[in-house]
Amino acid sequence: MGVKLEIFRMIIYLTFPVAMFWVSNQAEWFEDDVIQRKRELWPPEKFLGAE
């Protein structure tokens, strides 16, 4: 079972980083969270001069 185990491990070792890279580059998945975080850090009214 040594060869089958090594093939399985190699598939996992190659699939995981590729999958993480693909997920992290899906902008539409994170767009709402990023926009919300930017609004928390820099509120829009701060730049409009309304204090």
Rank of each mutant, 00 (worst) to 15 (best):
M1P: 10
M1G: 07
M1W: 14
G2N: 08
V3N: 14
V3L: 02
K4M: 11
L5Y: 12
L5H: 13
L5G: 12
E6P: 11
E6Y: 13
E6K: 15
E6R: 15
I7H: 11
I7P: 04
I7V: 05
I7D: 09
I7G: 05
F8M: 07
R9F: 11
R9P: 02
M10K: 15
M10R: 13
M10E: 02
I11Q: 08
I11G: 13
I11N: 07
I12Y: 07
I12P: 13
I12W: 08
Y13V: 13
Y13W: 12
L14V: 14
L14F: 03
L14W: 09
L14S: 08
T15F: 06
F16I: 06
F16P: 05
P17N: 03
P17E: 00
V18E: 00
V18I: 07
V18Q: 04
V18M: 14
A19L: 06
M20Q: 08
F21I: 15
F21S: 01
F21K: 15
W22P: 05
W22Q: 04
W22N: 10
W22D: 00
V23H: 06
V23Q: 13
V23Y: 07
S24I: 06
S24P: 01
S24C: 12
N25A: 04
Q26G: 00
Q26A: 11
Q26K: 15
Q26R: 15
Q26W: 02
E28R: 15
E28A: 11
F30V: 14
F30E: 02
F30G: 13
E31L: 09
E31Q: 09
D32F: 03
D32T: 09
D33C: 08
D33S: 13
D33Y: 05
D33F: 07
V34H: 07
V34G: 05
V34R: 09
V34Y: 01
I35D: 10
I35W: 02
Q36K: 15
R37I: 11
R37S: 13
R37C: 02
R37E: 09
K38L: 13
R39C: 04
R39H: 07
R39N: 06
R39Q: 09
E40Q: 04
E40N: 06
E40H: 06
E40S: 08
E40C: 10
L41I: 11
L41M: 05
L41T: 05
W42C: 06
P43K: 10
P44Y: 01
P44E: 12
E45I: 15
E45F: 14
K46H: 04
K46M: 07
K46T: 10
F47H: 02
F47T: 02
F47K: 00
G49N: 07
G49T: 06
A50P: 00
E51K: 02
E51T: 03
E51I: 01
